[in-house]
């Protein structure tokens, strides 16, 4: 059976918020090392991958691997009903058809139990090859969110160019054009590692959706390589991450 307790429901709320705009149904695979989830959006343009190692949990027990087919909209409704500082325990039997969520208030005076029906999802798992990225940029997650929002006013396509001098985001549309450049800073809040310069185009709508994960981490890592999907990674409390992959736009 599975029993996993998070000290604060807030973390689960942030995770669900970071997933539900991209995917509506997904399988959460639980094993003794933690929880994993991987799903593509319906148009196969982006993929989200979530990993929560046991260190994310106050208590974690999983005797036998269990896969939980989740409707994220339903899960979102359940977590919304809890207060952020409640603790939450997820439990499921070995061959479960439902997930149990038990919320407990700080002073233990209020408990709320929900049973969520699980779905039988037949999802493809994709093998993501290890990639040696040409450019790796780290910046405050709020800065990335701001840039993605500002770019989307100008065009549905965002061009990202990265050189040793910095990373540049450009959008060109009916309104005119927008260019935002960031250079590495001495205090280390922006770091730019470049093996070879790169320029790629991406759909800004997806980049914007990825920034739903901003509350999970102060920092975001962006990795680019030629002919390879963009990787945008938010770490989760030292013991997990949410990674988004986005297929680049290609010359027609």
């Amino acid at each position: 059976m599975l029993e996993a307790r998070l000290g604060e429901t807030q973390l689960l709320k942030k995770i669900v918020d970071a997933l539900k705009e991209i995917i509506s149904l997904s399988t959460l695979d639980c094993s003794e090392t933690g929880m994993q989830l991987q799903s593509m959006d319906n148009s196969h343009v982006s993929l989200v991958s979530l990993s929560l190692q046991t260190g994310c949990f106050e208590k974690y027990r999983c005797d036998r691997n269990v896969s939980l087919g989740l409707d994220l909209k339903s899960l979102s409704k359940v977590v919304k009903s809890a207060s952020g500082d409640d603790s939450v325990t997820l439990s499921a039997a070995d061959k479960a058809d439902k997930l149990l969520l038990s919320f407990e208030s700080d002073n233990k005076s209020r408990t709320a139990d929900y049973e969520l029906k699980l779905l039988n999802l037949d999802q493809d798992h994709l093998g993501i090859p290890d990639t040696n990225y040409a450019c790796t940029v780290q910046m405050p997650s709020s800065e990335f969110a701001r840039i993605c929002r500002d770019m989307s006013m100008f065009s549905e396509t965002v061009v990202i160019s990265c050189t040793k001098q910095g990373i540049k985001f450009s959008a060109n549309g009916d309104l005119g054009s927008a260019n935002i450049k960031l250079a590495e800073t001495s205090k280390g809040d922006i770091t730019i590692d470049v093996e070879e310069p790169i320029t790629q185009s991406f759909a800004g709508r997806y980049l914007n959706t990825f920034t739903r994960a901003t509350p999970l981490s102060d920092r975001v890592k962006i990795c680019l390589a030629p002919e390879v999907p963009l990787l945008v990674e938010y770490s989760i409390e030292d013991y997990g991450y949410i990674r988004y992959y986005l297929a680049p736009k290609v010359d027609d």
């Binding site: 593509m40 994709l126 093998g127 185009s201 027609d252």
Partner: peptide, 14 residues
């Protein structure tokens, strides 16, 4: 002109 790429051409099914 550019068109949106598809992830299935980058990643392989397990």
């Amino acid at each position: 002109k550019s068109k949106q790429g598809n992830l299935m051409s980058f990643f392989t099914k397990k």
